[in-house]
Design a protein around this nucleic acid. Sequence first.
DNA 1: AGCTAATCGAGACGGTACGTCTAGTCTTGCG
DNA 2: CGCAAGACTAGACGTACCGTCTCGATTAGCT
Lengths: 214, 214, 214, 214
Amino acid sequence: MVKQPNPARRSERSRQAILTAARELVHEVGYAKLSIEAIAARAGVGKQTIYRWWPSKGAVVLDAFLALSEAGPERSMALPDTGDLEADLKVVMRATVAEFADPAFEGPIRALNTEIINDPTLAAQYRAKLAGPVDEAKKDRLRSARRAGQLAADADLDLALELLYAPLYQRWLLRSGPLTPEYADALVECFLKAMRPDIHQFTDGEGSGKPEKQ
Amino acid sequence: MVKQPNPARRSERSRQAILTAARELVHEVGYAKLSIEAIAARAGVGKQTIYRWWPSKGAVVLDAFLALSEAGPERSMALPDTGDLEADLKVVMRATVAEFADPAFEGPIRALNTEIINDPTLAAQYRAKLAGPVDEAKKDRLRSARRAGQLAADADLDLALELLYAPLYQRWLLRSGPLTPEYADALVECFLKAMRPDIHQFTDGEGSGKPEKQ
Amino acid sequence: MVKQPNPARRSERSRQAILTAARELVHEVGYAKLSIEAIAARAGVGKQTIYRWWPSKGAVVLDAFLALSEAGPERSMALPDTGDLEADLKVVMRATVAEFADPAFEGPIRALNTEIINDPTLAAQYRAKLAGPVDEAKKDRLRSARRAGQLAADADLDLALELLYAPLYQRWLLRSGPLTPEYADALVECFLKAMRPDIHQFTDGEGSGKPEKQ
Amino acid sequence: MVKQPNPARRSERSRQAILTAARELVHEVGYAKLSIEAIAARAGVGKQTIYRWWPSKGAVVLDAFLALSEAGPERSMALPDTGDLEADLKVVMRATVAEFADPAFEGPIRALNTEIINDPTLAAQYRAKLAGPVDEAKKDRLRSARRAGQLAADADLDLALELLYAPLYQRWLLRSGPLTPEYADALVECFLKAMRPDIHQFTDGEGSGKPEKQ
DNA sequence: AGCTAATCGAGACGGTACGTCTAGTCTTGCG
DNA sequence: CGCAAGACTAGACGTACCGTCTCGATTAGCT
């Protein structure tokens, strides 16, 4: 039976200092060379205080970036919905391409992915707190399109999302090809062809197909 | 100016011992806990001999698994081509799903991906020696299908490959969903819808489209 | 600005373990083949703990033997004083000859001398903590003899000590000749001739000469 | 049975290069940090060539300095002999003091002494080739003085030499006191008192005493 | 002059130890 | 009790040398 610390007595000042130091150091030396020691020293905190509250280096860094996202809590996560699905998706995909090219995002996101690959616990947290909400927003937009008959009525939105994003993500992660706006457009077009309603099927969208997952 | 060792004098016996030790240790302790010291000790080799010929731990492990692939040099890399594209792809995709579920592959491949994400040099090697040839074989099959009019004449095979594999790869890497044979089938079906020739387009297959990349 | 460790928090248990291990290993493998790694391993101590508190291998070994001397703090350092200077000195010198012949002393003392020759810092420590007190005891005996008119009133005790001991020490260190009791006797006799009061000088012992050094 | 190399085929050019490199490196980095690898590299020589002809680092350095001495083969080793023993010895001892103070001699000589202390083989070589001839020259001067009745007829010259030089050598080696011309003079005076002929003994020098050693 | 055997420069090898760094635990006062 | 501070055991890091061991490429003497 492991002794659990009492969260009520936790020092908020230390917590903030640690997260801030973690963020700074990721930018300065990169994730791979980031050490708990350095975070503790920078934060003016005992190492034990970190080990007490976080299970791993990855968890600290994840928290550090979560804290950023939560800072602006009511950030508009909803995707644009002008009615023109193709145009909306291209905007979003091009934005994603641009984001991936930003060197300020590059480092930390690669770092997190590194940890997530090998740590299922961390991966679950990551999905629950960061990726999940974003994906949900994306699915909302697709759901809206499906309701409007722009996507097949029986479209699996999880698979749809993967079809749209996974190629982009993979290209970025493995550096297996150039990330250009044209590539984003091409992906959207493929996606739409794959997901468009079957021509021979007279559907009016949502409700007629089999129930989707989630 | 860095002094380069002379490859002609390299000890093949040591090279093999190191690669074998690396493979064994990855299985025994996992990639994260793998140390150069342990490899050297297991291989009965001086540490310097590893540092002399490999730039990083990742490079050793990559070579270790490359050596495996090269061991069977004429391994049939060609994909099945029965003429039935959908059936052929489903077979291949289901096999990939099975492979990803094999715990013996799981560890090392995750490990390699971890390193590849953060090390562009390693990534390039990986693509050139492992992923590249495999991808080429896959593209051969798709090219054959395109020639047969089963895919759009102007289909970009690189993008096609990503469309087909990236969702699977991402789900496995991030553990973001179950990898089932049904999922493999669904991916193939989506892929075919996205890539099928335009119905209103009267094509005679290969030669009419613009030249594809590579 | 180098960070200095806080001696108040030093682990006495570790310190003792290190000194004991050092002593044992000097006997087992000799000083030249003694390594910090081996001391740390034998003592069950992290290498850093040695590097934290000692600047060099020599310093550890010096401390190890100092600790032995200090173990018996009130060891009678005073030389015999029967009033017969020649007899007393011969006893002491013969004892020194015997000590130098003891193989248990041989190794470590040679080792310390090796280091002391090349490391002025270590040499100063050695003189302050080991050689100094012993020399002082010897000078006490000579001072007593000078007071009794057995040595020249203006005899320089430092030089006297060197005259008496340096030939013995040099013969041992450089192995330039045999160390026998007869040799010890001969040295004492030479020493007494060199240091005896001048015959034509009417002295009343201590107080009449110029003040000696120290 | 160890294979012995054939000295006839030895490369004189390599030998010189090695000795020169050794000398240079002792001056540049000091004896302790001198490595066989560095000597070989500097000399443009394979390491094996050093290991083939010398048994240890110390042996190389000893040879390096021997070579220097032999360069001027007919160097006058004889000490001055004006008939005034005291004056002659003071000149010589003051010169020795000056030599020991020369930083160019300091390093290498300390280094050699370090090795000699721990390596009896090297010590023997050192005495035979370097110290021996010098000591013989000194003993020649003392023998001349003894013949002239300035020293006791039965004086042991080996012991005499030690009495005269060991204090100086020890002070220098252990840095246990200042080396001044006055100190040199004081030593000579002590020496003469210790070694002067017995007043009650009517001797005419050489021949009347018991035969000396060597 | 050609042959042959040893030495040469070069440097890779299996090792040992270095001195540094970080992980994760433990200890000591302070608040 | 949580905290900052930091010493502790443990052990990997990457480097420097050790002394041995091939490699060709000279380079002697000997035939």
